[in-house]
Design a protein around this nucleic acid. Structure first.
Lengths: 196, 196
DNA sequence: TAAAATGATTGACCTAAATCAATTAGGCTT
DNA sequence: AAGCCTAATTGATTTAGGTCAATCATTTTA
């Protein structure tokens, strides 16, 4: 069943009763996105958060100079959305684009508030989710400050073993904040090291 | 009363009843730390999170090469602690050092769990806290990737208007992931721009 | 299968920021 | 006031990584 991966994910974090789970899943809507299509674009009011059942997506901003800045990749069992827009009621600045044909579960903002009222266990579930996202983001900050391209790429491969291979290198380079050329050179050096 | 700033902070985020608030504050312990002293050191099991009533602190890691990496400053009305160690039960890798004589409120891990059971509103309070910390951290990532020292310093001053002046520049440089010399030069250029 | 995109790699060159080494400027002590 | 820290600044030099321009490799599409 389509909800199964999410139920599994919830059970890994908290003890929710079957009724709670049913309440949650009753509020979900299935969303299919084809490769290259957008789940979210800037200047829209964000009404949903998404759980990835299948597929691969990226979330990015365009800065003043028009440069793309990838803030997140998401594959199976990841949540994604524009938290800033969602929680602060400001228009989104984020693009969310499918890198593969993807299947998502969407939850509406109002429904989520109701869910929190009716089943506070999900308040905990989301608190734990955001906390662990916060912790990994902190690792990313430490990695981006004062580490070489080589080191950052290695850390990326460790942190996202399942993403590497599904996403082109120039997108990984973007996520790491380096040029595609630099990443290519770093990877070459790593290959040479491995051989020797 | 010592708890007042925290109560204010809670009220800004959620609607907690007087009983809930009393329950929370009953679990707090006041901690005084002198300038230069540590609230937390690596390789300890972290049993508390801290709310800053007064003062200024920094949290940092030492990397493999022994370099200091400041991950956070905290002043009045900020929470700080080693989330990773606290939530995942691993030994801390973080130093938390007082940059000024400081007064903190500490909450114990077990007490916090009990609090969440007895007053789920605080589950929400902490969820909202972590979510907004997550959002500002994301901004920091975007700032550290692909922006110049000058831009990053300006963004820092905007984000932390109350910290600038209380913390020496070489520590701000460290937080930004640049050398003290580079920050000094960037500040010089900004001064010259302002004059012209 | 040819042609056309798309992505990866390589080379030459350039620039922002790091590093190294003094020098200067303010606070605090005594 | 003299000396002593600590922090900030400045100059000279080096370097990692960016940029620009081609070339190569690989999928996709016609």
């Amino acid at each position: 069943m389509i909800h199964q991966p999410l139920i599994q994910h919830i059970n890994d974090q908290v003890k929710a009763s079957p009724e709670d789970l049913l309440l949650f899943t009753s509020k979900l809507r299935e969303v299919a996105v084809a490769k290259g299509k957008f789940v979210l674009r800037p200047n829209t009011y964000v009404k949903h958060e998404y759980f990835v059942v299948e597929g691969c997506l990226s979330a990015y901003y365009l800065d003043q100079k028009g440069n793309k800045n990838i803030v997140q990749f998401a594959i199976e069992n990841w949540w994604l959305g524009d938290f800033d827009a969602f929680y602060n009621g400001v228009p989104s600045k984020l693009y969310i684009e499918a890198l593969e044909d993807s299947t998502l579960l969407a939850i509406n903002q109002d429904d989520l508030q109701i869910l929190f009222q009716e089943a506070p266990i999900f308040e905990r579930y989301f608190r734990l989710l955001v906390t662990s996202a916060f912790i990994s983001q902190r690792k990313r900050i430490l990695s981006s400050l004062g580490k070489s391209v080589k080191e950052r790429y290695l850390e990326f491969c460790e942190s996202y073993p399942n993403i590497n291979g599904r996403v082109p290198n120039y997108q990984i380079a973007n996520y790491l904040g380096v040029s595609a050329e630099s990443l290519s050179r770093a990877r070459k050096k790593l290959r040479e090291l491995k051989k020797a």
